[in-house]
Amino acid sequence: MHHFVNFAYLDAGTGSMVIQSVIGIVAGVGLFGRKALSSIRTRAKNKRMDSEKDV
């Protein structure tokens, strides 16, 4: 459990505060996965191009 003291004037809603951490983690993992996949693909592509150049 975590609490912050601030001057918020907006009622964020408890349910919203709870659910956003769950959605955020799931989305964050998805985003991380996509980024990792894209980086692997780019590296593989570069490697392939390099080996084609060597030939």
Binding site: M1, H2, H3, T14, M17, V18, Q20, S21, I23, G24, I25, V26, A27, G28, V29, G30, L31, F32
Partner: peptide, 14 residues
């Protein structure tokens, strides 16, 4: 009130 910590990682994901 139940609250939950939202990491920067999760916030960016959100």
């Amino acid at each position: 009130a139940p609250t939950r910590k939202v990491s920067t990682f999760a916030l960016n994901g959100l």
